[in-house]
Nucleic acid binder design. Sequence first.
DNA 1: CGAGGTCTTGAAGACGATCAACAAACGTGG
DNA 2: CCACGTTTGTTGATCGTCTTCAAGACCTCG
Lengths: 239, 239
Amino acid sequence: MSQHLLERLKQLERISAEEEAEILGLPASERHFSRGEDVVKQGSSPTFSCLLLDGFAARYKVLQDGQRQITALHVPGDFVDLHSFLLKRMDHAIIAVTDCRVAIVPHDKLREVTERLPHLTRVLWLTTLIDGAIHREWVVAIGRRTAAQHFAHLICELYLRLEAVGLIHERSFELPLTQAEIADTLGLSPVHTNRVVQELRRSQLLSWRSHILTVHDFDALTKLAEFDPSYLNLDGKPV
Amino acid sequence: MSQHLLERLKQLERISAEEEAEILGLPASERHFSRGEDVVKQGSSPTFSCLLLDGFAARYKVLQDGQRQITALHVPGDFVDLHSFLLKRMDHAIIAVTDCRVAIVPHDKLREVTERLPHLTRVLWLTTLIDGAIHREWVVAIGRRTAAQHFAHLICELYLRLEAVGLIHERSFELPLTQAEIADTLGLSPVHTNRVVQELRRSQLLSWRSHILTVHDFDALTKLAEFDPSYLNLDGKPV
DNA sequence: CGAGGTCTTGAAGACGATCAACAAACGTGG
DNA sequence: CCACGTTTGTTGATCGTCTTCAAGACCTCG
């Protein structure tokens, strides 16, 4: 099914030939979502999970007054919606930030896999635990870091996550979010987000034009953000 | 082992007699931690997971300048550290907020259970997904709610979580955190936290003295906080 | 080429941080 | 059981970060 997913899992744990075949053989219809469309709606109870093949997606909640907070960003290879496999009802929504290609995996099939392959089950479980680790890091960033540190932290995280699926080229990657969307992930206003972006541009740490973000000094960026990548579990020991 | 845990799991999914026996029979040595002690240290690689039997615990990270952010609070019945079963290295620490009684469950035993009981495995997995849902709600609260709303939201959440394990009596529960610790969970300064607490006291929504917090008007509190409990999955359908 | 969305800039104001001092509560030992 | 020291909570004043409002410039795409 998804080569990206397989690579990611292999970075986490040794995957047997049987498991590999199982992953690649997961029956999955493919669906497309266009920018701005909800991939999963709040309050729905999907009977399938979504694996992001191509594009960016975001989990978000909106408050009564219309304010929005993005709680997670998903990149290609993310099993965006493994949650709904066990959590019956979606307490939030997922939006396609860009046009997205998504593999749809029925919950029945997933259940069947978990009945038969306990080790693979643990690896899938692990990927959801890493999502949790990312959430914790976001809480720290939003709670205790300055706006600039927070933005820098987000860029460092995206950089490594995209690198893990081969989407970094010459220190650059596609960051298709608008500044307003970045603001909603950082918990800031769009205006202040813009000022922070310009601050980092001025200090030569990165540039960002026409949706391409280039990191000029990754070390300095991690230092500014106090970024410690260990929570991403990307050290890739197992092979 | 833990009656609390069993009750919690039964609220989520139907638990068979075999599974119930398995849970109650989990071999677990008991340990005590005193207030302020680390239950799990950052950077460690435990060979067991911790189930909180009694007391409050908190996951936290500290930044270079000494600022602290608490990323989760744990109450009795929480499988505090199921994470370490699959995540090898702790990227954060867990502190005993009060004196704690903890059951220690070896990872080997957990692995063995996951090999044999796929349904129980999914239920345990589910509990970690609910932790993730709580994290997302915290991101929203810290990112987009006012300080008073955020505090109110936290109290609503704790109220329901403690109610689920029978620790609410006459609209009251023990909240043994200091205001400085609350500040570290809300991402605020202690001074401002104090002002927010007083604001809610003045508006008659709650009182909080000598570590006992009483909610006088839960509905008004949820309304202020825009609290929607569905993310906690406590509706208790299965039995 | 025009139109809508996105980015940028300025000015004013709010929310929360910080600093500092003091009061109250707690716990420990005499 | 009281005395004392330490931790926790409370209050005031000042400061800074970020928000809000508003207007204009810049893109991008049909």
